[in-house]
Design a protein around this nucleic acid. Structure first.
Length: 394
RNA sequence: GGCGGGAUGUCCGAGUGGUUAAAGGAGACCGGCUGUAAACCGGUUGGCUAAGCCUACGCAGGUUCGAAUCCUGCUCCCGCCA
């Protein structure tokens, strides 16, 4: 009970889903040496979002205890495409895309990880192997073993295609663990199969099997689907503070407890009003990514726009050319806000376009330049432009 | 090698000769409400200086007054049997 290794393990696994096999992490910690903790990421999308930081933060905890993180940039496996949680074969990426993404990912990961205790490796180092070696690796598992994985099983059941390349993916990931000598591998619950299979592969190659730590999957700002770039429900770690704050304020109330558990250091206090908790969350996470000052400014900006319904303190200017003293509104909206002119026309009758705070009417397609010059045009609640009229001929 | 299924708008998915710019859903957007960009309610959702015009249902032709829908060829995808 009082064994410090047990306590450490207990702490490290507190918000994890599973730590397998039972007691393995405790035994490793008891050895007293720095453990090699592996995280493999596929640079299929360059930007890190809060969902990634759940796992990254866990790695950081290991680092703070003196352990080493081995961050594997899956530049080779990215070309295969991890089928985990996917119902469709992923598209392949070109070498250049992978390189660019890997570079960005690594830089952003160090917003959370301690670079001093991180070893970055690319799996092309060892996966660009000879056929013979690949044959050897391919011999380590049976098809039945791989098809056991639930998403493969589901696809098989639904008569959906599974490529051989995809079947190979878990093997390649397992081989990564062999090559870097991983003691522990961390991943989302969707990675459980792959991480466990890696143990078998390690043993086949005669190295000690890693232990497994799976973390819950963070939902996106929609509160439903997992946070991912493709679902466009993510909060990127490099997004501007105003965006981070605003996006977090629209997380559904019901998903807040998960966000608190996985991202914040204290649990959600359900006795507080939801808005307060949400503000606390938005403030805390914005501060973590951008600092306290930026978080405070972002909150003020949010209040100004959504509570007081005023224009922001800083508005981008947009210059427009008048014709005969007249500016055509749909064209202006198109150029100034990046929407189509048709969309602009539609927004007018909905009251979605305001001039200095006053809604414009459906018929007002052409406005005199004098009325627009220096005025603030607003689309919806959050898009503003100050208009400057140039070359007012006629 | 044989047999069968499929390709529709951002995505999913109806539609099998004409009120079809194309049902429905998701998403997104706008509005109302609100201590939240939550929830809830209502609306919009191809483009275009626009009562009209243009583009669109894998590609290329054809039939027809008229095609996403019928015919021919092609490309790509998938499943089953061997």
């Amino acid at each position: 009970m009082t064994d410090p290794a047990d306590e450490t393990a207990h702490h490290l696994t507190r918000n994890a889903v599973e730590a397998l096999p039972e007691g393995a992490l405790e035994r490793q910690l008891r050895e007293g040496r720095p453990l090699r903790v592996k995280l493999g990421i596929d640079p299929t999308a360059p930007d890190i979002h809060l969902g990634h930081t759940v796992v990254l933060r866990k790695l950081r905890e290991f680092q703070d205890l003196g352990h080493t993180v081995v961050l594997i940039i899956g530049d080779y496996t990215a070309r295969v495409g991890d089928p985990s949680g996917r119902s469709v074969t992923r598209p392949m990426l070109s070498g250049e895309e992978v390189d660019a993404n890997a570079e960005t990912f690594q830089r952003q990961a160090f917003k959370v990880l301690d670079p001093g205790r991180t070893e970055v490796r690319r799996n092309s180092e060892w996966l660009a192997m000879a056929m013979e070696e690949l044959f050897g690796l391919a011999r380590t598992c049976t098809v039945a073993q791989i098809l056991e994985r639930d998403d493969f099983a589901r696809r098989q059941e639904a008569r959906e295609p599974i490529s051989i390349l995809e079947l190979l993916y878990p093997l390649l990931q397992g081989y990564d663990s062999v090559k870097v000598g991983a003691d522990v591998e961390i991943g989302g619950t969707d990675q459980k199969f792959n991480i466990l299979l890696a143990r078998d592969i390690q043993q086949t190659y005669g190295v000690p099997p890693q232990s497994v730590l799976t973390m819950p999957i963070l939902p996106g700002v929609d509160g439903v689907q997992r946070m991912s770039k493709s679902a466009r429900n993510y909060v990127g770690v490099t997004e501007p503070p105003d965006e981070v704050f605003g996006k977090l304020m629209r997380v559904p109330d019901g998903a807040m407890d998960t966000f608190y558990d996985l991202l914040l250091d204290e649990p959600l206090d359900t006795s507080r009003p939801a808005v307060e908790s949400k503000r606390g969350m938005a403030r805390g996470l914005t501060a973590r990514l951008h600092g306290e000052d930026a978080a405070r400014a972002a909150e003020e900006h949010f209040d100004r726009l959504h509570v007081q319904r005023e224009a922001p303190e800083q508005i981008d200017e947009f210059a427009v050319q008048a014709e005969n003293g007249i500016v055509h509104l749909p064209a202006l909206l198109r150029d100034a806000f990046g929407i189509s002119a048709s969309e602009g026309r539609r927004l007018l009758p909905q009251g979605g376009v305001r001039l200095n705070g006053e809604p414009l009417e459906e018929g007002e397609l052409d406005l005199p330049a004098t009325r627009l010059d220096g005025a603030v045009v607003q689309v919806g609640k959050r898009r503003f432009r100050r208009i400057l009229v140039l070359g007012n001929s006629g």
